[in-house]
């Protein structure tokens, strides 16, 4: 199974139409990857679908970077009993 980081990069690349290999943890979704407000909604929905989790909108949308998303989603997966690797 791919790591959380790999899965987040794949989802981000799909929604924002980017090459996953060019996405780094320090990238800011809006400033570096060009995510517009509507796409941030899509990203949250797609992360929920990818990991089978429910995220609280305010907290999820406050995450600004790819690395922040990795930490946040890892925490949510742990809280909701979702098994992940990496």
């Amino acid at each position: 199974m791919a790591t959380i980081e790999e899965r987040i990069k794949q989802v981000t690349a799909r929604v924002l139409k980017l090459n996953p290999e060019e996405i780094r943890p320090e990238h800011n979704f809006a400033a570096d990857l060009g995510a517009e407000s509507v796409q941030s909604i899509e990203l949250v929905a797609m992360f929920e679908q990818e990991f089978g989790i429910e995220m609280e909108e305010d907290a999820a949308l406050a995450v600004e970077t790819v690395g922040g998303a990795i930490d946040f989603i890892r925490d949510v997966c742990r809280q909701q009993g979702v098994e992940t690797e990496g």
Partner: peptide, 15 residues
Amino acid sequence: WYVEGVVTKGFGRTS
């Protein structure tokens, strides 16, 4: 929040 042709949670209740 109906966005891009589907219902989403959007920016949520607080917004």
